[in-house]
Design a protein around this nucleic acid. Structure first.
Length: 905
DNA sequence: CGTCGGCATGGAG
DNA sequence: ACTCCATGCCGAC
């Protein structure tokens, strides 16, 4: 409970007591909760608030079924009734009964809190189901047989009168779950869930039980003050009460589950950005599908509560395997990538707390319980499920897993999955092996579903699904690497997968990068020819800003039509067809045919493409084949993607995904050192890099996207500068000659032209950032916020203009070297021929110029430094040439765990 | 000395 | 500021 209420007054206008400590009451329209004093909160929790304070108010109605009076005209009681289709209202208790009694109940459709009916319904369904069926949101419904001992909870009186749907509903659910058995540490178990509970549930804190799951507790006491237990509002409730907790084993849910079929986990991507119930298993989104059974939804909710890294990503096939012929319903619970410790000899598998509490039986003593788990082959294992007190919390572990792990031949990096066979309530442990396949093998999958749950290799469109939104292929490929990487022995990486998954993901980008040719990358990074960057100085460093041109994105192609006019080819995100647009068209982040306002005839995906594939191939620089292939693929409605563009999309989506993932629980993805002006989803080179100092190290020879970009951009910049310089000189000369006149520098159009990678003026690629500015109109210019990496490491003033072209060239080269040195100090430090060579290679010309003085820290401006820092090898390279250029970052050289970024101890 | 069990620590989120 | 959790550490055996 928020303590911050010292000065607050009870929200109850009939009370107005000063709050010593506030307790949350109902949810207000603002979304906040009413802060109540203990007394009022208790009344509220007991469902007597209106009775107590609003008796004289209007709005009381009787339940059509039981006659109970409900204060329908009050927000406080809003959740206590449902509106009947035929008119009138029914108290929630009756509504639930009705629901449960109905074989195929259509969930009553009460109106939701304020505007959202469905929401309320959904919520209601979930919760009520939990109460009704006795299987709480994700309660432990295991068959008792699973445990050698099964704690029984007696008083399971559903208590939560206040089950209004609230954003934190999930939390509350969890809270509910948790609140069952009580015990030793109850007091402390108020960890997160407790807090959640507070949200509005307010279970008696005193009664928060260990593992909540067990009981849907719905315990009676009112929370904090240990108020005298009161009949819960739903006290007479039905069935519900009796079935909570472990006892509820083969609860009705099972059937329900089957009915709903929702459980069937779908390899769908995790929660779509931004909201949605995670249901990553499809279970969620249930809003619509789930009318029959709330449980799955509840599961989904709980899952939501879990960090994404624990979301089960089991495929249907796996599930099938698990359920075998029995046809039983299998509910994926969670999965975890084995850490070094988990896979080590100790034989302890650290269980994610929330998972343990949500899906495993409640345990009240550190000794825990023996837990029977079946592996995918049907073999049963007995583990000790226990916990250690850890900081006021608990740390759950499964002990004795070594034999099982060994039998499955798992190692760190592999993933174990936990599912539940509903009918029997059995826990099933499957696994997915991290691939040890060579990183280069991009065809495979990274994570092999092994036996465990037999996997067929079917691609998981889900997995870090988030990661590879659009392209299974690239996604898989990336995953593969991921897997390869994670088969590590590098605990860091192991751990990376989860919360640190971000890093892994980023590393995965490398994989994607591998799919980019230099040209592709270049093209993708090329600002449109006719965009004039504005120069912004930040911290004394100049940055190019493009008002309307993203750096990364779905490419468009500048070309000239047969009339000689400049045009722009842009590709529809949906159908992949290319559409001809005016050259100055500014496309929104995600552009589809439907937005083709320039050519209404082709403003639909069904319209044929003007370009033939051949033409397209001509048009596209290098990667086009893929592109046309993609179109083919698109035509076939398949999702094959092997290509840079997709990869970039994936990156973009990844970024977005990551952003969104933060929503529920995972802070795991927030921008850290990204440029503050970048937006979520920004895929510019800055943003796609891991936070400073972290992430993969790049070698000098690294050909990854980022490195290429940096290098190329630098070159571009330098060339551009050089041109300016020469113009200036010319100008000066002229001035000297003519004695005056100043011509402002020419606009970059032609300059850019000059530097376009392709060297083919008509093929310059304009980048249309599809994801960057999602949802934003072009006018918003989200891109304005992007830093152009063509920044120059040195400022203008620092450049002493040469007077001849060779001088300029040298200047450029030196600058570039200088820049490179920032990246690869070893070059500077050792001056080894080897490095020199590399340098030359990069600079693409021979010079004997000694390395520019390395103006290290002092002269590198912060932002730039920060950027450079993203190449961790800066400063600690010690090697020579990395032959694996192609693999670039993908560490063949797997950075030694300790040394690498582990964040320093 | 090796292993195990349990707790403590501290990085990461 | 706080929780989670991977792993380190240490005592017991």
């Amino acid at each position: 409970m928020s303590s911050s209420s010292a000065t607050k007054v009870c929200f109850n206008s009939n009370c107005n007591d000063v709050l010593e400590r506030s307790r949350k009451g109902w949810r207000r329209r603002t979304g906040d909760y009413a802060d109540l004093c203990d007394r009022c909160a208790s009344a509220y929790e007991e469902g007597k608030f209106c009775e107590t304070f609003h008796l004289a108010a209007s709005g009381w109605r009787c339940c059509e079924s039981c006659g109970k009076q409900i204060h329908c005209g009050c927000i406080v009681s809003f959740h206590m009734f449902v509106l009947l289709d035929a008119g009138g209202i029914e108290c929630i208790t009756c509504a639930r009964k009705g629901f449960i009694l109905t074989p195929n109940p259509a969930w009553p459709t009460p109106s939701h809190f304020l505007p959202l009916l469905p929401e309320r319904i959904k919520d209601l369904s979930a919760k009520s189901w939990c109460q009704i069926a006795g299987s709480g949101p994700v309660p432990w419904r295991q068959a008792p047989s699973l445990f050698s001992s099964s704690p029984s909870h007696s008083d399971l009186q559903p208590k939560m009168p206040f089950e209004v749907d609230i954003p934190s509903g999930i939390d509350r659910l969890i809270g509910i779950e948790k609140s069952s058995a009580s015990s030793l540490e109850k007091n402390k178990v108020e960890d997160s869930s407790e807090r959640l509970v507070n949200g509005s549930l307010k279970l008696g804190s005193s009664e928060i039980h260990d593992n909540g799951n067990a009981g849907i507790n719905c315990v009676e006491e009112a929370k904090p003050c240990g108020k005298v237990p009161q009949k819960s509002f739903f006290s007479k409730n039905d069935t519900s009460t009796s079935q909570f907790g472990l006892a509820g084993s083969a609860s009705p849910n099972d059937d329900q589950t089957k009915l709903s079929g929702i459980h069937a986990p779908r390899p769908t991507p995790p929660p779509p950005i931004g909201k949605q119930f995670c249901g990553h298993n499809g279970a969620d989104s249930s809003g619509e599908t789930q009318t029959l059974n709330a449980r799955p939804q509840a599961d989904a909710r709980v899952r939501n509560q879990l960090l994404p890294r624990y979301w089960p990503r089991i495929t249907d096939q796996e599930l099938q395997k698990i359920s075998g012929d029995s046809n039983s319903v299998v509910t994926p619970l969670f999965e975890k990538m084995l850490s070094a410790s988990d896979a080590g000899k100790i034989g302890r598998l650290v269980l994610p707390k929330k998972c343990a509490e949500a899906y495993f039986p409640a345990i009240y003593h550190p000794e825990g319980l023996p837990l029977k788990v079946q592996d995918s082959k049907g073999k049963e294992w007995m583990f000790q499920f226990r916990f250690w007190p850890n900081n006021n919390s608990r740390m759950y572990v499964l002990e004795g897993i070594t034999p099982c792990i060994q039998s499955m031949q798992l190692q760190a990096g592999d993933i174990v999955t936990f599912s539940r066979i509903e009918a029997e309530g059995k826990l099933v442990m499957g696994f997915r092996k991290a691939t040890t396949a060579p990183p280069s093998n991009q065809g495979g999958e990274n994570v092999n579903a092994c036996n465990g749950v037999g996997m067929s290799g079917e691609a998981y469109s889900s997995d870090p699904a988030s990661l590879w939104p659009k392209s299974d292929k690239s996604g898989n490929a990336a995953k593969e690497v991921l897997g390869a990487k994670s088969s590590f022995h590098n605990k860091r990486k192991t751990s990376t997968s989860g919360s640190k998954s971000k890093r892994l993901r980023i590393e995965n980008e490398d994989l994607i990068k591998l799919k980019l040719t230099r040209e592709q990358a270049q093209g993708l990074l090329q600002p449109p020819p006719n965009r004039v960057p504005s120069i912004v100085v930040i911290d004394a460093v100049e940055f190019e800003e493009y008002e309307d041109a993203p750096i990364f994105g779905r490419p468009t192609i500048f070309a000239t039509d047969h009339m000689g006019r400049e045009i722009l080819w842009a590709q529809c995100e949906d159908c992949f067809k290319w559409r001809k647009l005016p050259a100055d068209a500014l496309l929104p982040s995600r552009w589809t045919c439907s937005e083709n306002s320039w050519d209404l005839e082709r403003s639909s995906c069904s319209a044929a493409q003007e370009l033939t594939n051949e033409q397209l191939e001509d048009l596209l620089p290098t990667c086009n084949q893929v592109d046309s292939e993609k179109m083919e693929v698109a035509k076939q409605d398949s999702e094959q993607v092997e290509e840079a563009l997709e990869g970039l999309d994936a990156l973009a989506n990844l970024a977005i995904q990551e952003e969104s993932e933060t929503l529920p629980a995972s802070p795991s993805s927030q921008a850290t050192t990204r440029h503050p002006r970048h937006r979520p989803g920004c895929t510019c080179i800055v943003c796609i890099q891991p936070p400073s100092g972290k992430g993969p190290k790049h070698k000098q020879t690294c050909a990854c996207n980022v490195c290429l970009t940096v290098k190329r951009r630098f070159q571009t910049q330098m060339l551009r500068r050089e041109k300016k310089q020469s113009e200036k000189e010319a100008e000066n000369a002229r001035q000297k000659q003519h004695g005056n006149q100043y011509f402002p520098g020419k606009l970059p159009d032609d300059e850019i032209e000059l530097f376009t990678n392709t060297g083919n003026g008509s093929q310059n690629q304009k980048i249309v950032n599809c994801e960057d500015c999602d949802g934003m109109g072009p006018s918003v210019s989200p891109l304005k916020s992007q830093i152009d990496l063509n920044i120059q490491p040195e400022r203008d003033e620092e450049l002493s203009p040469g007077s001849d072209s060779s001088g300029r060239m040298r200047l450029i080269q030196e600058s570039y070297k200088h820049y490179l040195m920032q990246l690869f100090p070893s070059i500077n430090n050792r001056n080894s021929p080897h490095d020199q060579t590399q340098l030359r290679g990069l600079v693409s010309s021979d010079t004997n110029t000694p390395p520019a003085t390395s103006s290290t820290d002092s002269s590198i401006h912060e932002p730039y430094k920060r950027y450079l820092m993203q190449f961790p090898n800066v400063g600690n390279r010690n090697s020579a040439h990395d032959p694996t250029q192609l693999h670039g970052v993908v560490p063949s050289d797997t950075n030694p765990p300790p040394a690498s970024s582990s964040g320093a101890k």
